[in-house]
Design a binder for these strands. Sequence first.
DNA 1: CGGAAGATTTCT
DNA 2: GAAATCTTCCGA
Length: 199
Amino acid sequence: MEKLNRDFYLNNALVTAEKLIGKILVHNINGKVLKGRIVETEAYRGPFDKAAHSYNNKGKNGRTAVQYKEGGYAYVYLIYGMYYCFNVTTSPENEPECVLIRALEPLEGIDYMKKIRNTENIKNLCSGPGKLCKAMEIDKNCYGMDLCGNELFILSDDNDYSKFVGVSKRINIDYAQECADYMWRFYLKDSPYVSVKPK
DNA sequence: CGGAAGATTTCT
DNA sequence: GAAATCTTCCGA
């Protein structure tokens, strides 16, 4: 169990998304430690992915600016005016790719998560991009945070999860035309904590 | 400068 | 099935 270093994040988003399955997301905030195992991700590859915020190199100076840096930073944005989504940026500088973290298996700080999520059902704490951001206390203050730092980072796991990774289409991007059919969603097979059951 | 839509969740 | 709610983008 050790912190993932910068090199881990320099692969493209597709490779990184698959490798992130089974890893452990850690957030140190206000003296609390919140942890969850990553069980669901999606890859977004800006320049040639119509579903990405950075499609066609859009928004280089706006919301997506952090995606243009080298990989390993937090890309956090507000969706539908009420929920945050947490992404890990990937690839070398000037390649705006990122991985959306869609679901976690809660590991530490569960009582606190139950409180702020207002539910007792552990399977419902982090089973969705908006839900896990609330449970992990990730918001716009985390935008651009360096994942090689000590506040928000990801740990490796001694187990090999590669044999248990499933693949499917991404969720809720019907507007992206042919890109909507790309098999760029990864999840831990048989985990009860994924957000949407694959077909 | 105004309107529309979105990588969602929750309640009815 | 619809509402909640606000940032960003695009057209005028």
